[in-house]
């Protein structure tokens, strides 16, 4: 049994149950994460309903190209990490390590693209401050959500990259198989962050086209 290769920790007496607990625990955390973002989506939805034209005008100023590239990057990174996770469960730590590396690279690339996009947004005065470029008042609210949601998402990405780096560190020491539960946890978290991005993308990048 592949799970049995994970180290058994204190309160548990069977590796299967320990693995089950880990998956369940991570999912509980993810449920909680979903509600964290749901609160922001709720705010966005209420305001989009209240101010449709301002949101459409503001939405046209978001860079769809960058957004699409980033979505594709994240989906590909999900593919590589999914392969990595399945590989470790089939006792193929080598393949798994490659998958983790690729995911890490794609994740970094996402943040770089995001940074470029942020710079362009700032150049176009899309920060809802004193020099804000758009006229409709509620356009500021749209960009309030744009910056908040993408920034919170980027924070989650950064945490995810930290977790991936830990996997790489473990893999370099040949301890990936003994820590296959860490691979599972990181994978689940990463996929969830990607799901959230898919929704953020649909909400922020596809308005008013």
């Amino acid at each position: 049994m592949s799970e049995a290769s994970a180290t058994l920790h204190e309160p548990f007496e069977s590796a299967t149950r320990q693995r089950e607990a880990l998956t369940f625990g991570v999912w509980l955390f993810l449920a909680s994460e979903l509600l964290l973002f749901a609160g922001m989506f709720l705010g966005y939805a209420v305001y989009r309903h209240d101010h449709p034209s301002a949101f459409a005008e503001a939405g046209r100023h978001v860079n769809l190209l960058f957004g699409t590239i980033n979505t594709a990057l994240l989906m590909t990174s999900s593919l590589s990490l999914s392969v990595a996770s399945r590989a470790i469960d089939r006792d193929k730590p080598g393949l798994s390590e490659i998958g983790v590396w690729i995911t890490l690279g794609l994740g970094l690339l996402f943040l770089i693209v995001k940074g470029l996009e942020y710079r362009e947004d700032l150049d176009e005065h899309l920060w809802p401050g004193a020099t804000f470029a758009l006229h409709a008042p509620a356009a500021r609210i749209f960009f309030g959500f744009y910056w908040t949601m993408t920034f919170v998402h980027a924070c989650h990405m950064t945490i995810g990259l930290g977790l991936l780096s830990r996997l790489v560190w473990l893999a370099r020491r040949g301890r990936l198989r003994a820590n296959n539960d860490s691979v599972e946890a990181t994978t689940l978290y990463w996929h969830l962050v990607d799901i959230i991005w898919a929704l953020v993308f649909a909400c922020l990048y596809l308005v008013g086209r």
Binding site: L36, M40, P128, F143, T148
Partner: peptide, 26 residues
């Protein structure tokens, strides 16, 4: 987590001027 969201939005508005609850602009 929803408390976290609401506090996060307050912090965003206070610290970074994200006008999310500002009734003057809707």
């Amino acid at each position: 987590p929803v408390l976290s969201t609401s506090l996060l939005l307050i912090i965003a508005e206070r610290l970074f001027g994200m006008p999310i609850f500002d009734a003057r602009i809707g």
